[in-house]
Design a protein around this nucleic acid. Structure first.
Lengths: 156, 156
DNA sequence: CAGTATCCCTCAAGATACTG
DNA sequence: CAGTATCTTGAGGGATACTG
């Protein structure tokens, strides 16, 4: 196994994020949560995921602080899974993934769901990385500066 | 198996993107590619991935049109794996993931690598989804409008 | 160096039955 | 309804040996 857990404290934020969220189901659970899905069975039906796996993933997301359990509103309410602030902060990730998919993964005639602003019904703007001064920046205008923890020398 | 291939044409762009890029290694390969890694062995060393798996993932990324092979510049040059336009368009995804990780996955004292603009050395701005008029928009101000292909009725 | 081929093992995942 | 427990399968992944 290679998955960094406690030991080997993965120094790259991308890798760390990926370790949490980049698996087959977690991201889709988060997506559903953004869409207002809150109950176990609704996730299950929406995703077509096995119940034991769903249970496992929900717990992982709870442990990661991305979801929280909350008593459902109303009388005979059930527990609900809701996004925490940390979870809601994944919105840019989900939107970026969506926009890339919309652009590159669908044929010309092929319809796909669309994310729009409720108030206006208009789709969002394309998300672009911006430099400090606010201008759109491409990958080759950037570089990764690594701050080693002053302990062991870094590989890259 | 549930992974949508040809049949079951996954209608959600997030799911389709996730199906391609959201696995343990592909995303990190893309990240490395953004960092200028181009050769098989360099990916291998950088990631600590088994060579057969790396080979498989590189081929998938080639098939997906995210990477392309290219003769290395210079005399006795080797083949190189470079990002295509489609691959470079994943930059927002990688940056969004990175920024989320930087913010939520590192302790206060814990150092992490940082993505900066080459020219100025300054870190990028936080990426935020923007509405059509350019103002930052939160998840609950949006909704997913699904365009069914006018064929079968949609579940959600 | 840049891979491919083979072997083996672990874990993710599905199916199903069961419990509060 | 909301899960947990158990079983089985198969894909993902590591190690290693081999080839152009």
């Amino acid at each position: 196994m290679n998955q960094p857990n406690q030991a080997d404290p993965e120094p790259c934020p991308v890798a760390r994020s990926a370790g949490i969220v980049a698996d087959r189901w977690s991201l889709l659970i988060v997506r559903d949560a953004f869409d207002g899905v809150r109950r176990f069975s609704d996730f299950q039906r929406s995703l077509g995921i096995a119940r034991n796996i769903l249970s496992d993933r929900l717990h992982r997301l709870l442990d990661a602080g991305i979801l929280a359990m909350q008593a459902g509103s109303g009388g005979g309410a059930h527990q609900q899974y809701v996004l925490t602030a940390k979870g809601r902060s994944l919105f840019p990730v989900v939107v970026a993934l969506r926009q890339w998919g919309e652009h590159y993964l669908f044929g010309e005639g092929e319809a796909h769901s669309e994310l729009v602003e409720k108030k206006t019904g208009k789709p969002l703007r394309a998300m672009l990385p911006l430099a400090d001064d606010g201008h759109a920046i491409s990958a080759d205008e950037t570089e990764v500066r690594k701050l080693g923890t002053a302990g062991a020398p870094q590989e890259r």
